[in-house]
Design a protein around this nucleic acid. Structure first.
Lengths: 193, 193
DNA sequence: TTTATTTCTTAATCCAGATTAAGCAGTTCT
DNA sequence: AGAACTGCTTAATCTGGATTAAGAAATAAA
């Protein structure tokens, strides 16, 4: 649970009382691998902060193909932002990739926090800013680079994560089929030697 | 200039004095078509709010190919968010598509506004939230849909804009070459009849 | 342990979209 | 008016990556 307070402390400093207030408005839960925390059509009532384990968000398109939107490991937030912000049914799935301890913050309680601890408005703004920048970069990368270059970027950015993920999920994240990804990887191995 | 205050009023309500303070910290400028407001390597010191005309942001990749990131018409903000937030050199170009009246807000003055009119922290958070959601949707669309479906979405979303844009820019935005875009459009015309 | 189920790989074939190239119309500049 | 750009189109060819299919390896279930 300290991880959450440390995370906040990186961007704004709270008094002991404010910290207590934050903790009183969130809950900690444990989820087993493969548990689905959110489905297409659901309204995203909570955002999730990962303490331990890994979560993953994805969409399923009209052909039944899964597209990974993001991974969240300890210290990261994850939610269907469209649904969470608008409180309308969303299109994202959020699933547990590896047994996880997760902090839940409800939309209601977040609004409460904004009022009671206005500093947190700043904190969440910064989170969203970072998320926007990362997202925009990924969009540009997808338009500018080949699958190979995208994979290269991914390995550098998520060095630790990479060994914990089934490679079909990595393939999906960088935007290729598992078959092509497998071929590409084999090609890269040959190149190196 | 009213457009700016209306834009703010949609999300937070300011007193007359607060409005005055906002206006005192921004400047209005006119730019001619093709004027480049920001280049790769520049630090983005201002964000731009379009009163009249159209701006466009894009990157140029290592092969010299341009990728349109966004269009901004009246009532929209535009900036290189990575560079603006981090005050580091960015990769985006921002160019005038059509003679434009633009409100400039410097990073400094924005910080000043956050302190003097904390309500604006909320306003800008909401802006960024919306921008994040739109961006994420575009990422999902790019992964899930064919060029044709993406074009279809684009025409619906930017009905008015579409007639003001050279189609090579539309092609770039949806992520195809102008040649392919031209072919696709011809194909669509045949289909309809 | 055996059986299912899922994941990964390899290979053949296919296709959306890129590349190259050329011609044409409209603008802008002398 | 002519020259020089820039934008759009068409067509031929090419390729990154998809699709289909089938087998091997690894996990999970019974």
């Amino acid at each position: 649970m300290n991880l959450l307070l440390e995370n906040i402390a990186k961007h704004v400093s709270l008094t002991k009382e404010e910290q207590e207030r934050v903790l009183s408005l969130v809950t900690l839960e444990h989820f087993k691998s493969k548990k689905i925390l959110l489905q297409e059509g659901d309204i995203c009532t909570h955002s999730f902060f990962v303490i331990k384990g890994i979560l993953r968000s994805y969409t399923i398109d009209e052909n039944g193909v899964e597209h990974v939107v993001s991974f969240a490991c300890p210290g990261w937030w994850i939610a269907d932002m469209y649904s969470y912000l608008s409180q309308r049914p969303g299109q994202l799935y959020i699933e547990v990739n590896e047994d996880a301890d997760v902090v839940l913050l409800s939309k209601e309680n977040q609004e409460k926090l904004y009022k009671e601890v206005p500093k947190l408005e700043r904190f969440f703004r910064i989170l969203i800013e970072n998320s926007l920048v990362a997202n925009q970069q990924r969009l540009i990368d997808n338009m500018s680079f080949t699958a190979e270059a995208r994979y290269d970027k991914f390995t550098k950015k998520y060095k630790d994560l990479i060994h914990c993920l089934p490679q079909k999920q990595i393939a999906s994240y960088i935007g290729v089929t598992p078959e092509f990804f497998s071929k590409m990887k084999a090609r890269l191995l040959k190149k190196q030697s």
